[in-house]
């Protein structure tokens, strides 16, 4: 992981991502004076090991003096919510008809949201999952941690199949306080499992926001000619003439989206269909504006 982080390209991409995220959020915040995420109070809760990039202000010098180890003091933020950003890092997220894959889009979104939340002095934790939680940046309220988050996001390579349900269940067990759980995923998994996971989270009192990231091609299925679909996540290949099955496909796809959306509505979750063709700042500002209006 470390060597990945040292990889100049990764760093550059992370920088770019960061700048991009910053631009998006600042652009948004320039017009807004009220953070959409409330709560500001710091209470020490635990130590954690220093990782490069951490603000050395929070180094526990006492611990350093006693044990010669770098530990940071961590504080529990006295906010109303802790935002858990769960980014789907399964293989299916690798698909992208344009320059950006869903995962690229998703991690930009995650980075932006993380920056935004941290900028609001709210706490955020970022996790990337496939069948299980693969990478997790623990809860932090320090804006300085944004680099660590971005590096983590940049370094991740989706390779495994999806298993959203178990991850949600696992998370529901871990989240002690009510918070906001933002799921960024294409949700290509067993619908019932996903819905049950969301139910579980809701049961714990968390607010769940589902950012359903879809590529425009997945939404419109605009292929022509003879196409062999090579399934990500080890699904066998299928050869067909997509134009001729387009309606069937769209019916299936829309049915799936509708079921998820209805389930979310039933659970009083926000469901947002994110088309990767849309500029990210539009999507985010649109949603945040909607959220402000409905609070």
């Amino acid at each position: 992981m470390a060597e990945h982080l040292l990889d100049t390209e990764t760093i550059n991409r992370a920088e770019a991502l960061g700048l991009h995220a910053r631009f998006i959020v600042e652009g948004y915040m320039a017009g807004e004076h009220k953070s959409p995420f409330h709560g500001f109070s710091i209470e020490f809760t635990q130590h954690r090991e220093y990782v490069p990039g951490d603000d050395i202000r929070h180094l526990d010098w006492k611990v350093l003096g006693r044990t010669d180890r770098y530990y940071l003091k961590q504080y529990e933020q006295e906010t109303n919510y802790v935002a858990h950003i769960l980014l789907d890092g399964s293989e299916s997220m690798q698909y992208g008809s344009g320059k950006l894959s869903k995962f690229d889009y998703g991690r930009q979104m995650a980075a932006c949201l993380a920056y935004l939340i941290l900028h609001q002095r709210d706490a955020v934790s970022v996790g990337i999952f496939d069948q299980r939680l693969q990478v997790h940046v623990p809860r932090t309220g320090n804006l300085g941690q944004i680099h660590a988050i971005m590096n983590t996001l940049a370094a991740f390579k989706p390779t495994q199949p999806t298993g959203i349900g178990p991850v949600l269940h696992q998370l529901a067990g871990q989240v002690k306080r009510r918070g906001i759980i933002i799921i960024i995923s294409d949700l290509f998994d067993d619908e019932d499992e996903i819905i049950r996971g969301i139910q579980h989270l809701r049961f714990g009192g968390s607010e769940v926001i589902v950012m359903h990231v879809m590529d425009p091609f997945e939404l419109e299925f605009p292929f022509d000619g003879l196409v062999e679909f090579d399934g990500l996540e080890a699904i066998p290949r299928v050869m067909t003439r997509p134009r001729e099955i387009r309606n069937s496909y769209l019916k299936e796809m829309n049915g799936f989206r509708d079921r998820i959306r209805l389930a979310c509505e039933r659970q009083k979750c926000h469901y947002l269909l994110v088309n990767t063709a849309q500029p990210l700042h539009e999507v985010l500002s649109g949603y945040l504006a909607f959220r402000l209006r409905t609070q």
């Binding site: 698909y95 090579d230 099955i245 069937s248």
Partner: peptide, 19 residues
Amino acid sequence: FKRVRWAAMRFVMEAVKRN
């Protein structure tokens, strides 16, 4: 034919199966 790495296989397979 074109080969496309594809994520939303479920729906394609379903549509193909039907047609």
